[in-house]
């Protein structure tokens, strides 16, 4: 037996547990309750003002969250990757540690903290909690790219007379864009699709797209739920194409 054949069991497994389930989302989305082909589920989304509203709010929160994470995370990643400013590897472990703790638990801890200080739950607390949850996912990929970057580019720019400010904007930032792109991928999509988190951080005042998918599936509206999931998948596909498509942060954890 050739050793390349050793991948066959996993290929079959991927077919059943990754490809088939994704195809089933498409199939269920394009069926009505009795199994006939229809576009009604998709059409229903575009005429459902509640769902459209939730969708718009989710995108808005996700964009804001992503921007705040870039603004806060980029400087942090830059400092962590700079050997003169940070020599400790432990700081980096401490920054990625929250990625491994259940987001639900961190969210509940945050929500408890808000209620302890008597802060009203609403959009502000939702954004705050989201930044909490996703900042490490932005910092880590940027840090990784900056850390692996060939320092001689920056040195060359400096030798050729660029000011430190110019070196940063014209050399470091453009070279670190792949890291920013995978950070965006890891923050934007999960924010749109979270469920449970937004319920706890806003006391059920604001729903995100993930929540309405979950509500429909749980109340046995599988076809409409699948249609919403399909819309989500299309957006994932588009944003993956834009950002070059690898979960670099997750991969880099290994």
């Amino acid at each position: 037996m050739k050793r390349s054949h050793w991948s066959i069991p996993y290929a079959v497994f991927l077919g059943v547990f990754v490809v088939l389930p994704l195809l089933l989302i498409l199939v269920y989305a394009l069926q009505d309750g009795s199994g006939h082909f229809t576009f009604a589920n998709i059409a229903r989304f575009f005429s459902d003002s509640d769902a459209l509203g939730t969708f718009a709010v989710s995108l808005e929160i996700a964009i804001e969250n992503t921007l705040i994470c870039i603004l806060l995370g980029y400087p942090a990643a830059w400092i962590l990757a700079n050997r003169e400013l940070n020599r400790s590897a432990v700081t980096i472990v401490l920054f990625i540690l929250p990625m491994w703790i259940n987001a639900l638990m961190r969210t509940l801890a945050t929500a408890e903290l808000f209620s302890m200080f008597g802060i009203q739950l609403g959009k502000g607390t939702l954004l705050f909690g989201m930044v909490y949850d996703y900042l490490p996912f932005m910092i880590y990929p940027i840090y990784n790219v900056l850390n692996k970057m060939d320092k001689s580019y920056a040195e060359a720019a400096q030798d050729l007379g660029a000011t430190p400010w110019k070196v940063f904007w014209k050399v470091t930032v453009p070279l670190s864009m792949p890291g920013v792109a995978s950070g965006v991928l890891m923050v934007f999509m999960p924010t749109v699709s979270t469920f449970a988190i937004s319920e706890f951080l806003t006391n059920n005042k604001i729903k995100l797209f993930g929540t309405i998918i979950q509500e429909n599936i749980n109340s046995s509206m599988w076809n409409y739920g699948a249609a919403l999931a399909l819309i989500m998948l299309v957006i994932i596909g588009i944003s993956t194409m834009f950002t070059g498509g690898r979960g670099e942060a997750e991969e880099a954890l290994i």
Binding site: L24, S193, M232, I236
Partner: peptide, 13 residues
Amino acid sequence: INPDVITGVSLFL
């Protein structure tokens, strides 16, 4: 890459 919700829903189906 898939968000948890999508993985969950697709496996549920």
